[in-house]
Structures are given as structure tokens and as C-alpha cells.
Simulated scan of single mutants.
Amino acid sequence: MKKRVLASFLTAMMVMGMVGCGSADESQGDAKADGEKGGYKIGLTNSFNGNSYRQQMEAYAQEAADELTETGEISEFVIVEANNDASKQVQQIENFILEGMDAIIIDPISATALTGAIQEASDAGIPCIIINDGPVESEAELCYQINFDTIDQMSTLTEYVCEAIGGKGKIIELRGTAGAEFDNIAHEGVLKALENYPDIEIVAEVYTDWTGSKAQSELASVLPTLDDVAGVVTQGGDSYAAVQAFEAAGMELPVIGGDNRGYFLKWWANEAPDGYDTISVSSNPWDGATGVYVACDILSGEYEVPNEMVHPFAVVTKDEVENYKDMGDEEIGTPTYDREWVRENLYK
């Protein structure tokens, strides 16, 4: 409690100090007191890093930070993890404010739990860049959101599965973490697609935290109660676990929407029944690097960075899966880009 009171007091003092020297927007790009650009201190708070997607996202962010450290744009880059604890992530943002970070990258645990902390950072002149699991609810001037079109992503996957099973039958929906905004929006995308398929029924919704171990154990408990499952829609980190669960249960393999993880893509390319028909779709963990590039461009003041940006998701079809037959188990099949791509495609 004392830490939160101290954080609020110091933040208020920083805001008061800004009144005489211009607005938060005017301070954007002038993080250094002497007016020099570069040498930025950037913190990344990840709500959870217990699956391969988040770990790869962090790795891409670190690669971009290392690149910009070599050029002198970044002097310090810190990654912390909140373990799905909203209060902990709020505290991490407040700590970054106290530590004088120039920008904060946030993979949010919730659409609403971080609103106050993001506003505190913005009031202190610190841009917050939201990646991966947004959007968040925030009117903060210095809140920048890099989101996937999750509804389109999940509609694309769901529609393919529905067509592959002939437009009727029973499906299972594997979800992520209960309460996470990405999961809420992903579910909305599934339901949107199902509006066109009245003869398809979701017979089970299973929360997996986007991890294979939990998906397999949860499915092991629910599959004995079901029959004639024709399809499975997944969000990520759990597609191959679904394959294993059905095989372990001795049930006929349904059409399982893929998640671009190496486990699933390698199985599809090398072991799946001949002609196995599905599609694999995922968010793109390269948005970790995108967040780093965007943070530095905001701080430089040289680019007109919009407050809302849309990052493309990744799709692998049956005609492309052979390209991934030798990838690592924990890798995610996804396109990567570069800094110029970010500027040309996201700053619109």
C-alpha cells in the first residue's frame, strides 16, 4: 500500500512539473532533458510468458532492442512478467514510471485493469505502447495501441473449419485465459462466423491459457462426455495438444484449426492422415519487435505515429505446410518484417 501511495505522490509531482513546460504531447520526443535524442530507456511488461508464443514475442522484442542498443537509440531495455496478475502489472507500470523509463510497452492482462496506470504514465509524459492482447480502454493521450484484427483472424479460422466439416456438426472451442481481452474478442470472432452456420453447435468451451499441457488435460476430462466431434477451433498454443487428446481418447480425429506452432505444423506436414484438410492461423509474435520500433519512433518525434494501428496475423494453408516440416517444436511459423515495414504499413 505504501508503494502505491508513494507512486501516486511522485507521479503527481511529475505532472505538476510538466504544467510549466508544456503538455504531455509536447514532451513526446523530448525524453532527454538536454534535448538530445536516443539513449532511451524502455520497459516491457508482459502479462504472462508461460507459453511459446509469449516467449517468442519477448525474443523478437529483445532482438530489436539489441539492434537499437548498438545504434545508440536505446540505452536500457527491461522485460518484466506479471504472471496473469493484474495488480502486479499495474505495479510494474508504476515502477517503470518511478524508474524514469522513456516508454513502456505493455502486453495487457485486461482491457480495463490498467487504465489508471496507463493514464499515470501518459500524464508523466511517458508513451505506453499496447501490443498483442489489446485493445485496452484508455483515453490517455500517449497511449498507442498495436492490435490484431482478432475478430477477422478467428472468423477466418472458424469459417474454414465449418466449411471443411460440411457446414454442420459439433465443434469444440479452445479458449485462452478467462477474462483476457484477446480471449473475449477471439470468442466474438468465432460467434460471428457461426452466425452463418446455424447447423453447427459448440458442445464444449475449454480454457487452456494458450498452453498445450492444460489443453490436453482439460480435453482428457471432457472428451469422454462427447461424441461425433467434427471440428475444433483454437486460439493458439493448444492445437497439437488437441491432436494428442483425441488420439489418446481413441476418437476419430476431427478438423482441428491450427495455431502455427511447430508442434502442430510439423505433425500436419509429416504425420497427419493423407489429405488432412485444415488451416493454421495465429497472431504474429513479431509484434514484440514492432512495439520496440514504434516506441523509439514516438520518442524521436520524427514520425506521425497513430494512436491505433493494426498488425497483420499469420496464415498457413495446406499448400504451404511443407515449408514448416522441419521447424522447431516451440517455434511459431510466422512472417517477420523490419523497421521500414513498420513505418510504411502501420503509420497510416
Rank of each mutant, 00 (worst) to 15 (best):
A180Y: 07
D152K: 15
V243T: 12
Q56H: 09
A117N: 07
E58L: 11
I42G: 07
N49V: 11
F264E: 14
P285K: 13
G189K: 03
K170E: 15
V15D: 05
I151C: 07
E63G: 07
A249V: 03
A248L: 09
D329C: 04
A295H: 10
A64T: 09
L194M: 08
V342M: 05
L191F: 00
K348R: 14
V315N: 02
T290K: 05
V255D: 05
P254H: 02
E173A: 15
D107F: 06
W268A: 13
I126K: 06
G176P: 01
P224Y: 05
T234H: 06
Q55A: 13
E141Q: 14
E58K: 14
M154T: 13
D34M: 04
D274R: 11
D152L: 12
V310D: 14
M1Y: 13
I200P: 05
N323F: 00
A61C: 03
V281S: 10
T334I: 15
V232F: 04
D199L: 01
Q62I: 11
G262S: 07
G262L: 06
T336K: 09
E320L: 03
T158A: 01
N307I: 01
L253N: 02
I105E: 04
V203Y: 07
D199C: 03
K192N: 14
E137H: 08
E308Q: 14
T45H: 05
P306L: 04
T156Q: 12
A272L: 08
N83M: 08
C296Y: 00
V203W: 04
A241Y: 00
T177P: 11
F48E: 11
K37W: 00
M154I: 12
G288Y: 08
A314R: 11
A82L: 05
E302T: 10
W286C: 01
I171W: 10
A215G: 09
E252V: 03
V233E: 03
M18L: 14
A31P: 00
E99T: 04
G179T: 02
E205C: 13
P335D: 14
I185M: 02
S110P: 10
A140N: 06
D183W: 02
G301R: 10
F313L: 01
I93H: 10
G166C: 09
V243K: 10
C143K: 12
Q56L: 14
S47Y: 15
A180D: 13
V90T: 14
E344F: 00
A272Q: 11
L223N: 06
E331Q: 15
D238F: 05
E94T: 10
E308P: 01
A31H: 12
S280P: 14
T150Y: 03
E340Y: 00
A245S: 13
P135D: 08
T11A: 12
K3D: 15
D123N: 14
E188L: 08
